[in-house]
Design a protein around this nucleic acid. Structure first.
Length: 420
DNA sequence: AGGTATTCACATGAAACTATTCTCTGAGTTAGG
DNA sequence: TAACTCAGAGAATAGTTTCATGTGAATACCTGT
């Protein structure tokens, strides 16, 4: 995806009269090669990068390690629950611990199996069935994607798990997504697994970025799931600066970043509840933009530009991955934009109706549109606030917070996708 | 003037339905011995 | 008789519909001054 984009940008750098001439392409590539890149190692700034040390999380890691340590003596550790906003290093820290547990286990020949699953991944672990199916896969077996009763899958899993003595450390990342969709029966079943097993045991580690997640759980589940809890506080601006500097040192050549850039980048992220991932992403994009524009250093302008770009790209990608009806509804909203920026549910439903009849799409009920609007709000594409207009009813007041340029870009994308 | 009852236009919840994809099972069919 | 084919029953899942109930405050209506 991003490679494609890079390529497009490369091409658009040509003066148009040179396009198609082979000489100039060679020339261009040669120049490109000769010019020193900003980046020493771009991977450091990718979300897949795995740092050796995790700064400002020593305390939490130590605590988690204390709780999980009994596993090395083949005792069952308490189930653990980890809270913290996005980009506060939860996943990274847990993976870090898992890795060292795994290494130790391997060295000493202990039968410990750490498993990490992200419950948000669509079609991987976002339902009860798939979660168990994925676990079975971890044990090197396959189970059909559908057609089997869930209990059947459970018993296969039990058989697998109990076939030899072992301790499983099961990490469920974004566990709130699981219960949001399926209810907390799944968690209840998971916590009960241990009583079904004869020789093996399983220790659950739940990760959630919803701080009040456990509050609305079944009390039985809650007590057994969160025997221990760790909270990951958000990083403050200074800490983010420090982390960014560390990464930047590895990623960029010396003296490529102008003073103030890191500080501003950190400030952006601190504003977004201390999300470091976001900050790192921002820095990378700023670097790419600076390099492309031929600048010698990364300036604050590049950072500002990067922020816009990251945001609009986030929105565009989330739009194109949505189903047709979502796009249709969004198009109905944007239809009157930017002339009009605020709408009520009824208005949108009406434009949606006329639009659908005109294009011969099948029409959904208002009930469904209401849900779709709520979801669009969650994505941050629109701002929907429920207001009461007194005698004139209760409705969502929908505001489109996007810039005009982005709106027309989105419209373009939607028209292509809906084949208008 | 002040209080309360209504009323609107949806929001929100739960359950049921639809279509798709896939497995499992058992009856019927076929080919080889 | 073993192997193969194929239809039908059952499941999981995503997306949706149907039905029922909830809701905040501007207005209509009433009450007492």
């Amino acid at each position: 995806m991003s490679k494609k984009r890079d390529f497009k940008n490369l091409i658009s750098c040509f003066p148009s009269e040179m396009k198609g001439s082979e000489m100039s392409i060679n020339q261009f590539f040669e120049n490109y090669l000769q010019k020193e890149s900003f980046f020493l190692d771009k991977d450091v700034l990718l979300s897949s990068y795995y740092p050796h040390e995790i700064k400002y999380r020593e305390e939490q890691i130590q605590e988690a390690a204390n709780i999980l340590a009994p596993v090395l003596r083949m005792q069952k550790p308490s189930n653990l629950f980890i809270y913290g906003k996005t980009g506060t290093g939860k996943t990274l820290s847990v993976k870090h611990i898992l890795k060292s547990v795994e290494e130790l286990a391997q060295k000493n020949g202990l039968p410990i199996k750490p498993i990490y699953l992200n419950c948000k991944l669509k079609r991987v672990a976002d339902t009860e069935y798939r979660l168990i199916a994925q676990l079975i896969k971890e044990f090197g077996d396959e189970v059909p994607a559908t057609g089997l009763p869930t209990d059947e899958v459970y018993s296969i899993f039990y058989a697998k798990l109990d076939s030899q003595k072992m301790t499983v450390l099961l990490v469920l990342d974004e566990i709130d997504q699981l219960t949001k969709k399926m209810g907390d029966d799944i968690l209840y079943n998971l916590t009960r697994i241990n009583s079904e097993l004869k020789q093996s045991q399983i220790c659950l580690i739940g990760i959630s970025n919803n701080l009040v997640f456990a509050e609305n759980l079944d009390p039985r589940v809650k007590s057994s799931l969160s025997e221990e809890e760790i909270i990951f506080p958000p990083y403050n601006a200074l800490q983010i600066q420090d982390i960014l500097r560390l990464r930047a040192q590895k990623a960029f050549r010396e003296n490529t970043i102008e003073p103030g850039v890191i500080e501003k980048c950190a400030a952006y992220a601190a504003r977004e509840h201390g999300d470091v991932r976001r900050a790192i992403d921002l820095l990378r994009v700023a670097g790419e933009l600076a390099e492309r524009s031929g600048s010698l250093t990364i300036k604050i302008e590049h950072l500002d530009e990067a922020e816009k770009k990251v945001e609009s790209e986030r929105i565009l990608t989330s739009i194109i991955t949505q189903p047709k009806q979502f796009q249709t509804v969004l198009y109905s909203i944007l239809f009157h934009c930017p002339a009009k920026r605020s709408f009520f549910t009824g208005e949108i439903y009406n434009t949606y109706l006329t639009f659908c009849t005109k294009e011969k799409f099948n029409v959904l009920t208002q009930r469904r549109i209401s849900d779709i609007l709520a979801e669009l709000d969650m994505f941050g594409i629109i701002n929907a606030k429920i207001i009461s207009k007194g005698r004139y009813g209760r409705t969502r007041e929908i505001v489109v917070p996007l810039e005009d340029g982005l709106i027309s870009k989105i419209k373009e994308v939607l028209e292509k996708s809906l084949q208008l």
